[in-house]
């Protein structure tokens, strides 16, 4: 039978930075083919198909409904697979191979992680689950 795709509305203009992304214009409607937890969603818009940043999209039908998981303040242990240096104030800088506690998995792909006293957003694509929970 037909596959029903969810439709999302673009909330801000976006210019693609690599080949398989889509250019977005505020107000455009896109159908979501696949939602990746790294914050890139595969979309189709009329005849075009490509990846778009989830943070630039809002659901057309249930704008108030949250698809996000609740924060887990206990923390789930992840290891960084790549270093990242914070650009925004609310981000955290980490080296490769560090163990962090993931406390909130956000759909936009920038998860809230804790390392010691420090908390900040980190790209989920640079995190690998250790499959463990933090012992309290």
């Amino acid at each position: 039978g037909p596959i029903m795709l969810e439709t999302y509305r673009v909330i801000a203009d976006y210019s693609k930075t690599s080949k398989y992304e889509l250019n977005l214009k505020a107000g455009d409607l896109v159908d979501i083919v696949e939602k990746s937890s790294n914050g890139w969603w595969f979309c189709q818009c009329e005849t075009q198909r490509g990846w778009a940043p989830a943070s630039y999209l809002e659901p057309l039908d249930q704008p108030e409904e949250s698809e996000e998981e609740e924060p887990n303040y206990a923390g789930e242990l992840y290891k960084t697979t790549k270093a990242y240096k914070a650009v925004e104030e609310d981000e955290i800088s980490l080296e490769v191979g560090e163990i962090v506690e993931v406390i909130h998995k956000l759909l936009d792909g920038w998860w809230v992680v804790r390392k010691g006293e420090e908390t900040g957003h980190y790209p989920s694509m640079f995190l690998w689950s250790t499959g463990e929970r933090k012992e309290v």
Binding site: I11, A12, Y14, T17, S18, Y20, E21, V33, E34, S36, N38, G39, W40, F42, G50, W51, P53, A54, S55, Y56, Y84, V87, E88, D108, G109, W110, H121, P123, M125, F126
Partner: peptide, 22 residues
């Protein structure tokens, strides 16, 4: 076939568009 997602992290939401998180 679906291409591999970009290898770079997605952009942060534009500040004025950031969903309120309380």
């Amino acid at each position: 076939s679906i291409k591999q997602p970009p290898q770079n992290p997605p952009p942060r939401p534009p500040p004025e568009m950031r969903r309120k998180r309380t």
